[in-house]
Simulated scan of single mutants.
Amino acid sequence: MIDETTLLRHTSAYAGQDSLRLAVAAAVDAFAAASIEISELIGRGPLAGITGQAHGAINADGDVQKDLDVRADQIIRRALAAVPCAALASEEAEAPEPGDVSAPISIAYDPLDGSSNIETNMTVGTIFSIMPASSGDAPFSAKGSAQLAAGFVVYGPQTSMVLTLGDGVDIFTLDRAKRSYRLIRRRVQIPVERAEFAINASNHRHWEQPVRDFVEECLAGTDGPRSKNFNMRWIASLVAEAYRILIRGGVFLYPSDARDGYADGRLRLLYEAHPMAFIMEQAGGGATTGRERILDLAPSAIHQRVPLIMGSIDKVQRIQQLHLDPAPRCSQSGV
């Protein structure tokens, strides 16, 4: 039976009369409202003038902007206009944008993750991170562990929001008839038994040895040290990969590699890796660069890139072990 709890009821119960929590709840509710509009826009696609083609511009992070990138950013900005926010950081903006200096929170977001998939009708999403406003420090300079809330919306066969308010992970699905989100999974825990890994195998020759070692352990199947046959997944959409891991388990790897521009990975720390790591840990999983816990990292720039390995805690720990101590490469540790 589907829970009758709506997202609005959930955020209201969380906030109570606390001023900081009320600001967090207002931000989450704003992202929910924006995502409903974005979902409708994506659903209509070319019928709404959305082609998935390049917008003719390069965003501040060096990526080609698609028409829906720009529209999604505009929709989110409108929704956040009434939210008390000290600073705002978007993938589509060059620098942090100051807001109300008295506001208790700052917000970072990726308006449309995976936009390169939109013209092929693949899953895309919105990612957001909510943190305390900096007191005297530069905005968005805190470690990921300082986050108050994080979430992402998946625009797939169903539109769903994954949310943590710092006390577990809940999943809400959009009831299109009522234009509201309803709770479908409470306090999600990532399964550890799933034998799946997600990585772009075409880059094998560029990977560091620890990543090759882990993948080769998986590919060896029942004849290898992990004594289990693994399946490989690769959707090339961070939100889709994260959602699958939350439901089914497994591990996702977007490591650094030897190609030009990939030495520090490609995903953005502030508004991709930080919120995903917060969600993964709140669901009993882990997130690492291979050598460092993602939530222990503090951004030096809002578009800073970072390697990201996330998912079931046993697999994340095994990959980090291979990075930090190559001696146990042939051990039977892990599942």
Rank of each mutant, 00 (worst) to 15 (best):
R194Q: 12
N117H: 09
L322K: 07
L270R: 04
P84N: 11
D18T: 03
C218D: 06
V124L: 05
R293D: 13
V153D: 02
G49P: 05
C85V: 15
D3Y: 11
Q189V: 13
P98S: 10
E292K: 12
E91S: 06
Q53K: 14
R248D: 14
S237F: 10
A54Y: 10
Q158H: 08
R268C: 04
G285A: 05
G151Q: 10
S135Q: 15
R212F: 01
V316M: 06
P46M: 07
T164D: 09
G249L: 12
S135H: 13
Q332P: 00
G125Q: 05
A195C: 11
A72N: 00
A87R: 00
M310D: 01
G62H: 09
Q53C: 09
I279T: 03
F172V: 00
G250N: 10
E92W: 04
T289G: 06
E94G: 10
Y181S: 01
G45R: 13
E217H: 01
N203I: 00
D167F: 08
S160K: 10
N229A: 14
A93Q: 07
E241Q: 12
T288F: 07
N59A: 10
S35L: 08
A142S: 11
S106W: 02
G99M: 09
D167G: 06
L20F: 03
Q147C: 10
S160G: 01
P225I: 03
A23W: 12
L112I: 07
G224A: 02
S115K: 01
L112D: 02
A236T: 06
A15W: 07
E97I: 15
P328A: 10
A283P: 01
I107K: 10
S333G: 01
K143D: 05
T123C: 10
V239R: 03
S237D: 05
I190A: 12
K178Q: 11
R187H: 13
V335T: 09
L41H: 06
F31V: 07
E208A: 15
Y262L: 11
A95E: 12
R233K: 13
F128H: 08
Q65G: 00
M1D: 08
D325P: 00
V153S: 03
S39K: 00
M310F: 15
S312G: 13
Y109T: 06
R176W: 05
A287G: 03
D73R: 02
I245V: 14
A27R: 08
A138S: 13
G334D: 03
L297R: 12
D100Y: 07
H206W: 14
Q189A: 14
R268G: 01
R44S: 14
Y155C: 02
S12A: 14
E196L: 12
R9Y: 05
I36D: 03
A201I: 13
L270G: 09
